[in-house]
Simulated assay, not measured.
Amino acid sequence: MYKVRVVMSFGGAHNLRNYNGKCENLHGHNWKVEAYLKGDELNETEMLVDFTIMKKRLKEILETLDHKYLNEQVEFFKVNNPTSENIARYIYQGLKETFGKLTDRVAVWETDIQAAEYWEQE
C-alpha cells in the first residue's frame, strides 16, 4: 500500500451555530489542511499520484474557502455547521470528485494542538 500527503493552508472566518461559548461569535482561523491519497498500485511513472496534480486540486478546493465567511459565502456551510469536522468532509468530498477511491482522509488543524479528520469506510 502507498500513501501520499500534501499540506496546505487557508484563512477564513466562521461562527458555530447551536453552540454556547466563544465560538458562537464570528472569528477566524488559519486552518492547516493535510490531504492523503492511498492505493496499492503505482502508475506508469511509478507514482501513486503526481504531487503537482494533487497540489493543484487541493489548491482549487481551498480557494473556495480562503478569505471567506464560511457561513454565508460557501453554500455547503449554509446548511452544514462550519466545524473543523465538516470542513474536513467538504475538502474530502472535493478530492474524491477527482481522485475517487484513492482519496484516503483529510485532517484540518484549527490550531497547533487540535485537529479534526474525515474519511469514509470502504
Rank of each mutant, 00 (worst) to 15 (best):
I61A: 03
S9H: 08
M8A: 06
L95Q: 13
W109P: 04
P82F: 03
K68M: 10
K56E: 11
I61F: 05
F77V: 10
N71P: 10
L48G: 11
L62F: 00
T83D: 03
K56P: 00
A88G: 04
T83I: 00
E41L: 09
V108W: 11
K22M: 01
K101S: 14
Y69D: 04
F10M: 10
W119M: 00
N20M: 08
H67T: 08
F76E: 06
E72H: 03
D104V: 05
T45L: 15
T98M: 10
E24C: 08
E97C: 03
L37P: 01
N71W: 01
F99A: 11
E85L: 09
T83F: 01
L102Q: 06
I91R: 01
E46G: 11
M1D: 02
I53G: 02
R17L: 09
F77G: 10
V74Q: 07
H67E: 07
V33P: 01
K22Y: 04
F77H: 07
T111K: 13
A88E: 09
L62N: 01
Q114M: 04
E75Q: 12
E117W: 09
G21L: 09
L37W: 03
P82H: 00
T103W: 04
M47R: 11
V74M: 07
E46P: 00
W31E: 00
K38I: 01
T98I: 12
V108T: 10
T52K: 15
N43F: 12
V6A: 14
L37A: 02
A35H: 02
T45G: 06
L65P: 01
E120N: 15
R105V: 05
D50L: 01
N30S: 04
N43T: 13
Y36F: 01
V49H: 11
R5T: 12
